[in-house]
Amino acid sequence: MLKAAVVRFPGSNCDRDCFHVLQDVLGADTRFLWHKDHNKIKDLDLVVLPGGFSYGDYLRCGAIARFSPVMQEVIEFAERGGMVVGICNGFQILTEAQLLPGMLVRNRSLKFICKYINLRVENTKTQFTSKYNDGEVINIPIAHGEGNYTVEDDVWAEMQANSQVVFRYCSADGSVDAASNPNGSRDNVAGIVNKRGNVLGMMPHPERAAEPLMKTAHGYRFFESIKNVFA
């Protein structure tokens, strides 16, 4: 059975949603980790860095969290090949920790955007997306002020060569165009994996759309894909 943990930083606010989906909807053995915890990661399969405003988003989003005690062990865990997911603020922490390339900067509109958007699944060969179909369009929410993905050209070229872009913002019929880019992200990037394929970051919130009660349950298969790895 999948053994998962959700990390809580001061200012995390999607931690209970992630816990609920992993524990109650997916049926994974799930626990919380506190940002000051030591030696609690060894036997885990998955670490989730949830959304929120860790440490008040001071300095830069995720910049302080990256130096928290628990993150030193999350970095080691990722380097050993452990699966790590960062959603929203979690994605920002993963880029600050340089576990993922690039950076998330202020939305082009300068507005905090909270709404359902369409995503095209660009890579279904990852451990996080195997339950989706290639090019499938899913509808889940975003809620962020700093989700504008930025990356240097040479790194970007390498990311494309390795199919590291996993989700892109698109229209309802699946076209990736400027009109469906909510925040100014490079090439409509919404989610990426590292080169090795064990660390994923995404701005949209699959945990907010993972059961029939919600507007859509399109985020469920994201978690189901991860569970499937340890089936």
Binding site: L59, A63, F67, G102, M103, T150, V151
Partner: peptide
């Protein structure tokens, strides 16, 4: 390491 992020 902390005050600036050299990527941006």
């Amino acid at each position: 390491e902390l005050l600036a992020n050299p990527i941006i």
